[in-house]
Every structure is written in C-alpha cells, then in structure tokens.
Nucleic acid binder design. Structure first.
Lengths: 192, 192
DNA sequence: CGGCGAAGTCAACGCGCATTGACATCGCCG
DNA sequence: CGGCGATGTCAATGCGCGTTGACTTCGCCG
C-alpha cells in the first residue's frame, strides 16, 4: 500500500505517476468491492483517489482495464493456506468473525462476489479464480480426486462468505459457537 | 405459469391486463436472472413481453417494484424440503446436475445470486431470503440451535450453487461421483 | 535558463437508461 | 348504441455514465 504523506514534508515531486496510479487502484478496489462493476462509477473512484477522471483513461485504458487490474490486485491479499490441521478452525473463525475484523480480506471477498454476478466480469473472474484460487487449493489438497474435492471446498468456502455478506450482523454467543463448530467440522472433512 | 396462446383461437379479449402483467413478470424473471438488477433493461423486458415500456410503469410502479414482484415470484418455484433422509442425496444430485436439467430452479438461483450483489437489491433479497428460505429451513431443521445450524446449511447451499454458476461446465464421471458423495455427506451432517 | 514531454485539468459529447405525461383505442355496461 | 374508464401507444425529458480531445502546468535535462 503506497501511502500519501499529507502533512509533513510535502512531496518533492507533486506529479508522481506511480503514486497516482496506486491511489486510483486502491480507490477502485474499494468501490468495486462495495458497488460491483456496474455500480461503481469512475467519477466516484477518481474523486476518492483525489484525481481527475480522465487520468483513469490514461493509466488504465478504461473501466474494464481498471477492473482487471483491481481484480488481479485483490488476489494479492491472499487466502491463508497453511497446515492442514489448523486450517478448519482458522477458516471457521474467520467466517464467524465480524466483517470489520479483517477489512482487507472481507474486501477481497466482496470484490470477487460482486464480480461473479455481472456478465461483463464473470469471465474475467472465472479465469482469475481458477488460476489463483481453485488451482492452489487443488495443489494444496493433493491426493486422490483433488479436482472434485477442491470444487467442494471452494463451494463451501464461497457459500459461507456469501451467507455472511447477505446477513452481515455478526454472530454472537452460543450461536457463534455452534456455527464455528459446524463449519470447522465441514472443512476438517474436506481437507482429508 | 400463464401461457399465451399464439396460433389458435386468437384471444377473445386483446386487452387483458392480467395476461399483460404476467407476460411482463415472466420476462422480468428471465432478464433479471440473466443480467442482474442493473444489467436488465426495462426496454428489453418490455420487448420480450411484447409490450410497451410504459406499461411497466403502470403495472409495477417502476423498476424496483417490478424487481420486488419478480423476486417474490421466483421463490414460488420452491426448493425441495422433504424428508430428512432423502434430502442430502437429492440436493447433492441437484448441485451436480447440469444447469439445463432444471431450468426453472437454476433460474431462480441465478436470480437470487445476481440480486445478492447489487446494493440496491441486497436489502430486498435479505428480507425475502430470511422469510422464505432461512425461516423455513430453520423450522424444518428444528431441534437445538436451529438458528445457527440453518445458517450453516444455507451457507453451504448457496456456496455450491455459486460454485456451479461460476464454472458452469457440468460435472462428469468420477469427478461427479466424488462431488456428490462429498456434498451429500456434508448436508447429511447438517440436517442432523 | 529554455523547451519539451510527461502529468494533470477541463469541458463536451454521445449513449442508454428510467420515468412521465399527453394522447389514442378498445371493450364493457348502462 | 354511446360514453367512459381501462388498456395500450408514443414521444420527450432529464440524468448519470464512460469516453475523448484540446488545453494547461509542472519538472526534468541539456
């Protein structure tokens, strides 16, 4: 994340192409995540980045180009594949946790989900998802029928995220415990 | 489903408000399912229904009204809750089946998923989903912690659907078998 | 110090959209 | 059969969007 110094030591170069690009991209990630491809407005993205709209055209060629870059960038905030034993618990906690707890992850997820629904972006997403999500899961799972098993895993994964997005009130108390236990159990079975 | 007789016995009443309404609604369900709330155009819906755009305004008040009705109607094609023993297998088969096999169900699902992502429609969906999906599941599940368990079930349910929508190539052969087995197992655990 | 290209600004265009109001036509009911 | 309300038609309006091109300003480099 490139940060723009605001108060101290005003930037030596006020015209910094790289910083501008980064600012636009960051704003785009947020906007696309929150409003989807169609819902996000270039004007708004530009405003949030403190930049003129025309620069988006210059740097990214257009809305679709910007989206593609943002999609790629959103995968950088990666998903946690670590040891198989810890995975189910971690992931269940993550699902149960409120959305604010891990903003960048939630962001990335929202981004992907929103992208899944627009016919314009679905192909792009499908490709990226295959490359960067299903592929890795598949390799990580390994063993027999890794393909089918990774699809099941991915399905469950996505599903809980969607469920959380739709009803974004955080889980609490006993309900939370039960939720975590069940989800954890499911993922435990899926990685074995 | 109201069907419009085309060849034989030209309609006695050519001005039929109810039939017009139904035609619009049917077209709307298809269009919203395929293109989402933002992507669907009233003009296109009207054209598909063989009707003037202005009538949508008259009958449904506007785009949002039309969407709400279509959303409600999409739940009519209901999900199969039958006996608990058969449920897991049925649902797994359903998930594994190709999208063409049960067009109206796939339609309804696409509709819901597309709706989930647009901020405009998310609240509407959230409400409808609660009333007509999570609520019934919850009652159907019954027993202890029905709330949390129904959320897990709904999550898994939605997830597999999304996964299928994103990669819509049908599953085949051994991959299909493994998929069904795993999914069936998950739902089996979730209803107990 | 001077110019030249990169970075940023501004305004306009064209498009598709939902919505609206005035108008035409049908069909029922008295 | 006559009128009146329901049904359907048409055209216009306004809005937000992405995109584009000409213009201005900066900062580096010779």
């Amino acid at each position: 994340m490139t940060e723009v110094a605001v108060g101290e030591r005003a930037p030596v170069r006020r015209r910094d192409a790289e910083a501008t690009r980064a600012a636009i991209l960051a704003a785009a990630k947020r906007q696309f995540a929150n409003f989807g491809y169609d819902g996000a407005a270039l004007r708004e993205i530009a405003a949030e980045a403190g930049v003129d709209v025309a620069l988006i055209g210059r740097y990214f060629g257009g809305k679709e180009g910007l989206f593609t870059e943002a999609l790629k960038a959103s995968f950088e905030d990666r998903f946690p594949f670590r040891d198989r034993a810890a995975f189910p618990g971690e992931i269940a906690e993550m699902m149960a946790g409120d959305a604010q707890a891990r903003p960048e992850r939630t962001h990335a997820f929202q981004f992907l989900l929103r992208a899944a629904t627009s016919p314009t972006t679905a192909p792009l997403l499908s490709l990226a998802l295959q490359e960067r999500f299903l592929g890795p899961i598949r390799d990580w799972l390994g063993g027999e029928d890794a393909g089918a098993r990774s699809r099941v895993l991915a399905g469950a994964f996505i599903g809980f995220l969607v469920e959380r997005l739709i009803r974004d009130e955080p889980l609490r108390g006993r309900e939370r415990e039960v939720f975590i236990a069940r989800v954890s159990e499911i993922f435990g079975r899926l990685v074995s």
